[in-house]
Every structure is written in structure tokens, then in C-alpha cells.
Design a protein around this nucleic acid. Structure first.
Lengths: 345, 345
DNA sequence: TTGTATGCGTTATCAT
DNA sequence: ATGATAACGCATACAA
């Protein structure tokens, strides 16, 4: 009874296996890590014991001696944003396929929180990190460099950056879309953006709109930009503001699909029809873009690929296999019903 | 040069701190874990050294001696499903607030994969687990019991289960909605469900529809049920099948919002208008339910609360604080435009 | 092929 | 208040 209780309470160790199988702990260890370096007969015997008593290597001990945990950390703004949820799912799947486990934390789009999470995940044994975007303080960046922490930046792309980035050029992608909008004849455009502070993706997208405007002869600096956090309600609120202006825009460019859909709802609620009264565009191409009526013109972003490739990059980084470096995964404009030429003029 | 390089490569240990501060390793350890048990002067000195050389406790060594990692694992079907993404986000936030870190894996709705992930996360040092639903083999259940692995089941509720569950009664919730539908006069109803194999939530919801039907005098067994994986396209495909039947249903009850929205799109694409020609209901109340036109009648589920309460339950379990046990978080029917009485009759 | 012995970095139990 | 020291469980260099 006492023995049985003990069996349940105390997890078995290599010692237990060794004793039971009549071999040394070294042999047990080898059976697990290098089965081929052990005699057929003994291996069978040891494996049987392992199975019988339900032995599993102690994680802490293993990490202590191996100096790695095969665990990778990801810090994303929030999983509630479908683009990150999707990318993270692909990231996890690819890690799992390669024997790595995923540690997750979220920054809520707050740099100081991200910094804390970086330290936390590393303290929790993460071998490497996935971070979103380039916007972070020089302090933490230097800290990461000093400690030689392997990490990649995703959802952004800058081939001149000193650390690998996996994503796409937000500025260029948005400029391409804005060019389409302006090319259709829209000359009063407005932008609904996520807060740009601490968010280089949003900032780059807004910059992309101005690039296209300047290029096509519009007054880039005069384009109104409303910044508001990610949510349908906020998209709607921003649209309401824009429609209250004297020079109502004929096209509203949003930095993500959620804001765009919120904006569309509000425009319709205020009696405007889309796209005949006002055009709206999004960014990301999440499922909702095809569910709304009219369907949303947006920029398709390969979220799953970013997650997958980020995982591969990190694994390569850890394995010292030849560095894959930066990966530009590209984007594609999806022209749909929410964008059309302005009515008169 | 060599020394500096060494500094960068080798992470500093308690030994380094102790030497530099002229104290023993025990004192350094105390400074970190029980600052009050150390003299003011020495603590200041030690802390300064820690700061200076950038010391951080080694995770493996700590886990080895403490026999816990303050890490909790979650295995969910997929983060791409917004309901889990949202719940997981809240789960992570609550864990973070309490000093725990989150390890994530996904089962893709496949029991055998879930089983593997359970073993993996435990092998990776997870102190406790969050699992979704009750549907899993007796083998793994027994295994968990034997090892005394603390875990909770979420997104389901069964107060008679031997382990804590945090969620709601899927069957009862769906029965309540179905009662509303049938009460409105619909007597030809159909169900679009996720695959019920290995998914007790889906199964319970379908059962709920039959409960209500039987209760209100409809032939419960004759209600057509189409099972198809979670996606808009599949929801649309299922609706297409249903509309091809001779006795076309007047109301289609879907076990989640995504299938429902897909079904709505298809119905409309086939020239039917909602709800006058056909009613549709969903389950979950994710954002898309209010974006679609007409808005979707559905069952509101407190996803964030489930994540948060699950975390609290797990933490309580680990802390031996009085067991909170089961938590029924309840649901609410959200009546919206997609449901109306059938036209004639 | 297998065994012996040692170190990995921390924490905790004793002393002092 | 502080120090010496023994685990913790595993992997590996070295012996046999």
C-alpha cells in the first residue's frame, strides 16, 4: 500500500528504470537518446521497463544539462485578432512537426508590455522568439543582441534589418492599393488607421497611402487620418467622424478589414450605399471580407505562410543550418465590390 | 577580449554573482526568493551585481529543484476558430497576471492528436492542463488520473464529471434556442452540425435540438442533420444540400456561427431571402453574427469568461486553495433578424 | 556494448 | 544574518 502510494506520487527516474532493468543509468539514457548505440537485447528490456513503470524524462533536469528546452516563444499583440490567431496556428503546427513546443504571450500592442513578456518567456526557457514588427525600444533590442537571443520579426519586412524578418512590405502593399483607388478617380480620400504609436505596420500602411497620393498628384499631407483601436465599433465611429466633415471623402482606406467592415456598416446605417456613394477598402483579407455585402476590396496577406516560414526560420537559426535570412512573402490586391469609381465628377 | 566574449556566451550563474558580491550562493538565492531574509546592506550589493552582470536564474535548474515550472498547457482544437482564440487570449492574460506562462498546442479536433499533445506538453514541464470538452479515450483519461495531472475541461459543463469543468451546458443551451425556433411555428427544421465524432459539444447541441423537437411534438428522429467541418464554404455546401430536398426546411439551425453565415450566403445566392423564405440560427455569437445582414440569431457564449475562469480554476488547483470545482457560466439567446416565423401556414 | 563518475545551476537544510 | 553542502534527475566523457 505504501509502495503503491509512493509509485503514484513520485515520478519514476532513470535510477528506477536502471535498477528495474538491471543496467546503469547511462544505458537507460542512451536507450532514449541514442537507441542504436545500445545492444538489441538490453534495449528491449529497458524499453519494456520504461513502458511498464511509465517513465518519462524529467524536463527540468534535461533542460539543465542540455541547455535548451526545444521551446519557442511567441509574443503577439493579441490572439483575438484573426490575422495573428491564424498565423500563430500555422506557427504552432510547424513547430510541432519539428519537435518544438510553443510558449505564448501577448503584448496588447503595448511595447512596454512586450518587453516584459520577452524577458518572461526567456526566463521560462524559450530557446528563441517570434516577435511582431520592428517597433521596440533600443534598450530591449540591445538586450536581445547582447544575449544572442535568436529571434525573427514577422508581419513586417525590412531586408536591411540586422535580424531576419518574415512578412511583406506594408508600405509598398498599401501604396499599391491606394494607387488603384486614386486611379479610379477618387480625389477625396481618407484613412482609418489603427494607432500608429508602437505599431510600424500601421504606420507603414498610412505612409503607403501618402506615397501613392503624392505620386498621383494629390495633396498627401492633407489626407485625413483617423487613428482608433482595432474593433468594429471603432471603425464605425471613425466613419461617422469622416462623414461629418464638410468635404466628405469619396473613398475610405482602412488599414485592416475589421475597421473597414465597421466603417461600412456605419456608412450604410447613415443611409449611404457602398460603393456608389462611398468606397471602402480594407487590409488583411480575413474571412469577413467575403461575408460582408458588398464584398470588401482588400489586400490579401499570407498569414498562415508567415507563421509557417517564421517557424522554419527560427528552427534553422537554432540548428545553425545556413541562415535563411529575410523572407518577403508578398501580398495581392483583391478587387471586390466595395470599391468603384466615384459617382460624379 | 576573451573575457568579454566569454561574458557574452556564457550566461552568468549564482556563482558569478556570489563571487562578485563577496557572498555565498545561498545568500544570492535568498536575495532573489526571500529578500526580507537578508541584510539590507548585502541585499543592495547583491542586487546591484545581479543588475550589472545581467544575471537571470536558470530555468532548468529551477524547475529541477522546485519540481514545477509555473507553466500551464492548453490544448485546443484550433486557434483559427475565433471562439477558442478569444478564450485562449483571456486564459493567457489571467495566467500572466498570476505569474504563469502558457504553453499551447492544437489538436485539430482529432482525439489521437490531442492525446499526443497532452503527453508532449506534460513532457515539456506543464504543471497543469486546459482541455476542451470531455470527449477523449479512456486510456488517456486514466493516464492523467494516475499521474495526478491537474486539469480542467472547458467549453463544456457536466457537474457530475470527476474533474472540474468550466463552461455551459451545450445541450440545454441549444434546446432553449430550438424551442424558440419551433415555438415560432417552424415545423420543418434541419440542422447543420460540425462533425460529432470526438466532439461532445457538437453532439450535445444536436441532441438539444432533438430534445426541443420531441418536447414540442415534432418527430425528433426525422430532423435531417448534415455534418461538415467548420468553415463558411462547408456551411454553404450543407445549405445547398438542404435546399435540394423535396421537403425544404423553413428553419436551419446551425451549431456555430461560421456554418450559419456560410449557410445564409448560399441561401441568398440561390435566390431565397432571409428570414422570409428561410430562417437561420447560429451558436457562439462571434462578431460576424452582427456584421452579416440580416444579423444572426444565435446563442451568446461567454468565451472570454471561460478562459479567465479556467485559468483561475487551474491556479487554485495548483495552489491547493479550496477547490472551486465546476463552473456553469451560462449562455444567452440573442434574437436577431435571421429568425422569423415561417411565411404561410 | 556497458558502467562509473562528474557536472549542470538552484534551492533548502543545516550549521555557525 | 550568512555560509557550507547536499540533493534534484539527467547526460556525457572516460574507462572497462
Amino acid at each position: 500500500m505504501t509502495r503503491e502510494a509512493k509509485h503514484l506520487r513520485q515520478a519514476p527516474t532513470v535510477q528506477d528504470v536502471a535498477r528495474e532493468a538491471g543496467v546503469s543509468t547511462a544505458t537507460v539514457s542512451r536507450c532514449i537518446n541514442f537507441p542504436e548505440k545500445v545492444g538489441e537485447a538490453t534495449r528491449q528490456r529497458v524499453m519494456k521497463v520504461i513502458e511498464d513503470i511509465g517513465y518519462a524524462p524529467n524536463f527540468g533536469a534535461r533542460a539543465l544539462v542540455a541547455k535548451r528546452t526545444n521551446t519557442i516563444g511567441a509574443i503577439i499583440p493579441t490572439m483575438e485578432n484573426a490575422i495573428f490567431a491564424r498565423g500563430l496556428q500555422a506557427f504552432q503546427e510547424e513547430l510541432g512537426r519539428n519537435g518544438f513546443t510553443l510558449l505564448v504571450a501577448s503584448s496588447s500592442y503595448r511595447p512596454e508590455l512586450e518587453e516584459r513578456q520577452i524577458r518572461t518567456l526567456l526566463a521560462r526557457g524559450a530557446d528563441a522568439l517570434l516577435l511582431i514588427g520592428f517597433d521596440r525600444g533600443p534598450g530591449i533590442t540591445e538586450w536581445l543582441r547582447e544575449r544572442r537571443v535568436p529571434y525573427v520579426v514577422a508581419w513586417a519586412f525590412d531586408s536591411s534589418a540586422p535580424i531576419p524578418s518574415v512578412g511583406f512590405d506594408n508600405r509598398r502593399a498599401m501604396a499599391a492599393l491606394a494607387r488603384e483607388v486614386i486611379g479610379l478617380g477618387h480625389n477625396r480620400i481618407a484613412v482609418i488607421s489603427a494607432p500608429t504609436a508602437g505599431n510600424d505596420r500601421a504606420r507603414d500602411r498610412v505612409a503607403g497611402v501618402r506615397d501613392a497620393a503624392a505620386e498621383l498628384g494629390l495633396a498627401a499631407e492633407e489626407i485625413p487620418v483617423i487613428e482608433t483601436p482595432y474593433s468594429f465599433e471603432n471603425g464605425a465611429g471613425a466613419m461617422e467622424q469622416l462623414l461629418g466633415r464638410t468635404d466628405r471623402p469619396t473613398a475610405v482606406i482602412c488599414v485592416n478589414d475589421v475597421l473597414a467592415v465597421g466603417a461600412m456598416s456605419k456608412a450604410r446605417a447613415m443611409g449611404l450605399s457602398i460603393p456608389s456613394d462611398i468606397s471602402v477598402t480594407g487590409f488583411d483579407d480575413i474571412e469577413i471580407a467575403r461575408v460582408i455585402d458588398p464584398e470588401l476590396t482588400t489586400v490579401h496577406v499570407p498569414h498562415r505562410d508567415m507563421g509557417r516560414v517564421s517557424a522554419q526560420t527560427l528552427i534553422a537559426l537554432l540548428g545553425e543550418t545556413d541562415l535563411p535570412g529575410h523572407r518577403d512573402l508578398g501580398t495581392e490586391i483583391r478587387m471586390r465590390g466595395s470599391l468603384a469609381p466615384p459617382r460624379h465628377r
